[in-house]
């Protein structure tokens, strides 16, 4: 879809052809999502140790990609909309990463301070 160019070009462009998902595609994506749900439940039983959360996030990421690309039509949409979604996720990662690294850096200090205050009457 021509989000910004339709107007700046100043031409009354022909109405765009929307993407219509075929039944096969919709069912296929749904089946894939169900299968991945099964995989993630099964993977949780399997002890990956510390990697558990990353495996789960990776599978969730694939599922999210399928929903965003096909159910939400991003694959066929104006790229700006996909850029928006990706950018928001980048920002979440920034927020999460920095806050997390600061908190873990600070945790020993907080622990020590808590013990000190517990020790002194």
């Amino acid at each position: 879809m021509a989000v910004s160019s339709a107007q700046t070009n100043g031409q009354s462009r022909r109405a765009h052809e929307p993407h219509v998902s075929s039944p096969a595609q919709l069912i296929g994506i749904f089946a894939a999502l169900l299968a991945l749900t099964g995989v993630t439940v099964a993977a949780a039983e399997f002890p990956f140790g510390d990697l558990d959360v990353y495996v789960a996030l990776a599978i969730a990421g694939v599922k999210a990609f399928l929903v965003a690309a096909y159910f939400m039509h991003l694959k066929y949409d104006h790229p700006l909309n996909a850029v928006l979604l990706v950018f928001s996720i980048v920002l979440v990662v920034l927020f999460l990463g920095v806050t997390l690294s600061d908190t873990t850096q600070l945790a020993p200090e907080v622990q020590a301070a808590a013990e000190a205050s517990a020790a002194s009457p």
């Binding site: 993630t40 789960a56 996030l57 929903v67």
Partner: peptide, 13 residues
């Protein structure tokens, strides 16, 4: 989409 992330994070791992 939000639930797709909530489910493994809360219930599984």
């Amino acid at each position: 989409l939000v639930w797709i992330f909530l489910f493994p994070l809360l219930y599984l791992v």
